[in-house]
Design a protein around this nucleic acid. Structure first.
Lengths: 347, 347
DNA sequence: TTGTAAGCGTTATCAA
DNA sequence: TTGATAACGCTTACAA
């Protein structure tokens, strides 16, 4: 493979001149530039980026560390990152499946020298110290972190506000007994959504009842289980907020099988606005978060913190969530309307 | 930031020794090794990967070039690539949104020196020469290419066989008038699926009829349009093969709105086995392709072509497609059963 | 406008 | 077992 030296020799110039031509920097006479270009194309010269970033201390690449790549959530985040990065001539170095702080730091170390900034999404709570260590080396943006870290920017999803909006919507429709199918304990999103639910309930003067907070773990199966519980219990809420769409899918299908009508007998809301949400029957009212934007903003923050050479801006952003009203909650209901007792349920 | 020099000085050894310790290579006395380790951790030394790959001519990273990152297809491919790469301590450098050969070559040039191999998925037909140029520099695996390229391995999806299976399934069920909603002209997947459809029809002694090949472009909207056409025409097929699931969604919803029963009045099959396929009503019979495996195999091919130092193995693999029978085709039908004429259709 | 030469932070080849 | 020192392929003062 031809190096800058070969090109220089072939064009009868010094390697400095070749470098100048390729970087379009200092003035080079058109004549010699042409000689260099043609020599380069004859030799099919491709500059070595590793060598380049060794001297320049920049790489035109950003690192991305994720817990997993599964599902449309991560897919959209990456798309947002990649598109925005590419628009600024950056490539992205990805590594996923990092369960704990050690693995994250390990991957970051490995990226040392080949990235100009790092986007981290850590599901782990205990990674704060490790991440702080990383942030000393290059700009870091945290995606939806469990807790803030000094020296890192962050972008979070409006889980809390979104969940509150969901419950307020149900309250507006006249519901008073509103249950929630929770996400897995320890999960940031789950906790925040639960907090939003509780706050909205309290705000409406409804004292929180543990009997209305059902366990779940964001899987379709757990939604199904929640529905089974509901069908077997004697007293039923009039509305259920499943803390993500995935559980809503399981929940709705169990209800459907049991012959319980949605939204007639029960209003259901989800969270995430997954692609399937609008294809469910009935189309699911849920909360939309612009995941693409999450990734896109992260890159923008990195870019701006690179420009602002000295001062490491430590931005904290919140990505808004919007309620997507579809059919699964129905129209306003009469107050004190008796709960329909369907026959043949739970068999 | 501390360099290998700082560590050497602090530990009172030469930089060569530090390098040896960090690479666990040659024998170093336990004593000095310990001194090096503690000096390194005191200085919080992170080796510079760019410098390392400059001398070693390897990077432990693979490049990935894609036309786009949208949708679960790409998401799964990347997941397969990333998981498999990570299992072998490789990271992946991604760049997407490459429309033509020039952009692909440009991105590949930029990766020169920082990757050990490249996975390319090009939607463009005219990129053969460019890709050949790339393949001279590092091992290349092509994903579902329009045409094979000398010196490149490739993994293709069994579009042809899958489509043939679809039609044979419909034939088995007793269908004779089978229409297809085609994908966009020029698209590899679309062409191959059409070819499979035609071959199966001919194999059953049914002469291909252009009246049964309807235009489409893989979008939901085009599926909807196809349904409109169907509803307005006087003679109707008994089964329709929509060349991807996305069009099937639009197709089914239009049929549903018009009151045409599936599979009662019309059998419908899709392709891709998208997540929503099983949530449609009726659940869609479709063709499943293991997209994760597509990415995973690509990495495995790269790894093995790196091992086989000299000989650049030029593997050509085909990823099997399997028919997922669900409810949208119904059960075997009586031969010559009269087509039901529903009322109130197409209004 | 061009060339010389000193880095950039590693690994690798010798000797010692 | 260790240490000098020459690469690796590029950028960038500084000098010409």
């Amino acid at each position: 493979m031809a190096t800058i030296r070969d090109v220089a020799r072939s064009a009868g110039v010094s390697i400095a001149t070749v470098s100048r031509v390729f970087n379009g920097s200092s003035r080079v006479s058109e004549q010699t530039a042409n000689r260099v270009w043609s020599a380069a194309s004859n030799l099919d010269y491709w500059p070595n980026s590793a060598a380049r970033s060794l001297t320049t201390h920049t790489s035109n690449a950003f690192g991305v560390l994720l817990p997993d790549l599964y599902g449309e959530f991560f897919s959209e985040v990456i798309r947002g990152i990649d598109h925005t990065a590419r628009r600024h001539d950056y490539q992205i170095l990805i590594s996923s499946s990092h369960a704990n702080a050690d693995e994250i730091v390990g991957a970051a170390k490995f990226m040392r020298g080949r990235i100009d900034g790092l986007i981290i999404m850590a599901s782990d709570t205990g990674s704060a110290e490790g991440i702080q260590q990383i942030a000393e080396r290059f700009p870091v943006v945290l995606l939806n972190p469990c807790r803030q870290v000094d020296g890192c920017s962050s972008i979070s999803l409006a889980n809390f506000a979104g969940a509150r909006t969901v419950v307020e919507h149900l309250l507006d429709l006249g519901h008073r007994e509103i249950a929630i199918v929770k996400g897995p304990p320890g999960n940031v999103d789950a906790e925040e959504r639960l907090r939003g639910y509780r706050e909205a309930m309290q705000g409406a003067g409804l004292s929180p009842s543990l009997a209305l907070e059902w366990p779940g773990d964001f899987t379709e199966l757990s939604g199904l289980r929640a529905a089974d519980m509901l069908l077997q219990s004697s007293s039923r809420p009039t509305a259920v907020f499943t803390a993500n769409d995935c559980m809503a899918v399981g929940f709705l299908s169990a209800l459907h099988r049991a012959g319980l009508e949605v939204p007639g007998a029960l209003a259901v809301v989800g969270f995430d606005d997954t692609t399937i949400a609008r294809y469910l029957s009935p189309p699911l009212t849920t909360v939309h978060v612009d995941t693409y934007e999450l990734g896109s903003r992260a890159v923008q923050l990195l870019l701006s913190s690179l420009e602002a050479s000295e001062y490491k801006g430590c931005a904290r952003e919140l990505l808004p969530a919007t309620l997507m009203v579809r059919s699964s909650c129905g129209s306003p209901r009469q107050r004190e309307q008796p709960i329909l007792q369907h026959g043949g349920i739970g068999s």
